[in-house]
Design a protein around this nucleic acid. Structure first.
Lengths: 249, 249
DNA sequence: CAAACATTGTCTAAATTTGAGACAATAATA
DNA sequence: TATTATTGTCTCAAATTTAGACAATGTTTG
């Protein structure tokens, strides 16, 4: 249920013409996924957005939004780019969405939504299975989408996701990405799938294994008996107590 | 001469609580330098800041500010980070500076300067010798500073320069950096000094030379007779018509 | 005018990293 | 027990990086 009064209050406590958008990545079923929310009454999806309270750090605002939508805190979250084209669509369409929900909306009581917005983009890496998607007050529902099969996105969010992925690919830190996107334990080939999906290229199995083991960031655990007609793979876990294991922020 | 009326007009046409700061890098006398401006009446220096007009892209705003302060356009300029700590000092001190210049300032007529600001940081690479520093309307004068010997900086500009340098180091593209920071022609050892200064580490001369030549981004020109008691080095120039030579934006 | 000097351009061998193929080990199935 | 699919590891070759060596060459010095 959408609570317009709450939305308006939030806007009034926020910095005008500035928003935050979080591109939340997860990994499941060998697919890289993004958590999107659907606008009410309009067939458009968006990454997790919100506003910056007047007394809040922008990093705090991003962490708050992430927690509101996933229930998770203390996980990897990093700013990657600010989007501010003059032609950037305003988020005035939100008014239409609200109106379709509640006839009694006094459009003029919603502050500065028709003005041009500049948005600061963050991306986050989360453990897919630990997330319980919660749409924000102004959205209908949240869902994960395979990054290869995105729905129609509002604003410039397609470009935003593209840029977040580029940042992820470029700043490729194996320990950081694996630690944050994988579940607690995993097999080597599952880990390889993750990197191949993100980078969009394949590696030979033997050399990948050597590279990961040489990095000395993995602990080998017991074997995993999958029931397949073949040798059982070992499970691995990212080592604790190394520089990458610390709470990221 | 500071023209307060102009400043106030500019502020009224700009997006509130949002600014742009450009960290402008140059290279001269084997030193990496940053172009700073000094506040009037206060012993504080700052990188080149400005505001975003309501109808302007943020990239355009950064390019405009760069051109205003250096006379240069069409050169390398890239966004690297948005700064938005809640504790970020406001730029209210500008009022004091203005007041010390002009007794007749009605402080209240200067819009939103006492509020908390969020700033989008850009960095630029320029040919030192082509720059004619021009302080902005609200500053006293501009000067180049060796990045190792910075004066006292206002706001969080020390952190900003630090982060811009880190970005430069991390996204090290030899052709891009050399092309933008070096003069038209240079010797191989001059080029090596540039990279060593930026990265803060030394390379062996022979291997550096091979690496640069193997990249196939340099043209060898005539020799340069410096008058030193040794073999004269060749001059080089970055090749035109390769992917890096195109106007950067 | 020849020797000394400082720096440059290039070559080579060794060390390290990366790429590709091979093969034994092993859990489930036929 | 043989077959099958995958896994863990080894090895050799290729490519890249590191380190050292040395001849070439303007200028200065004796």
């Amino acid at each position: 249920m959408i609570d317009l009064q709450k939305i308006i209050e939030g806007l009034n406590q926020s910095i005008p013409q500035l928003s935050i958008d979080c591109v939340i990545f997860g990994f499941h079923n060998q697919e890289l996924k993004v958590l999107l929310s659907k606008l009410p009454a309009i067939d458009l999806w968006a990454v997790q957005g919100g506003f910056i309270r007047k007394t809040e750090d922008i990093d705090q605002a991003a962490a708050r939004i992430l927690e509101e939508r996933t229930g998770l805190k203390g996980i990897f979250l990093e700013q990657f780019h600010a989007f501010g084209k003059a032609s950037r669509p305003s988020i005035a369409f939100l008014k239409e969405a609200f109106k379709s929900i509640s006839d009694s909306v006094a459009i003029e009581s919603i502050p500065f939504l028709t003005q041009r917005f500049i948005s600061i983009g963050y991306y986050s890496l989360v453990d897919f299975l630990q997330v319980k998607p919660v749409p924000s007050v102004s959205y209908e529902r949240s869902e994960w989408f395979d990054i290869q099969k995105l729905p129609t996105l509002g604003l410039d969010h397609a470009e935003m996701i593209e840029k977040a992925l580029k940042t992820l690919q470029h700043s490729l830190d194996y320990a950081l990405i694996g630690f944050n996107l994988m579940p607690e334990t995993f097999t080597m080939s599952e880990l390889q799938k993750l990197y191949e999906t993100i980078l969009g290229e394949t590696t030979s199995r033997n050399n990948f294994q050597r590279k990961m083991l040489d990095m000395d960031i993995l602990e080998r655990l017991e074997k995993k008996f999958t029931g397949g007609a073949h040798k059982a793979p070992y499970l691995y876990r990212f080592k604790r107590y190394n520089e990458h294991k610390q709470p990221i922020f």
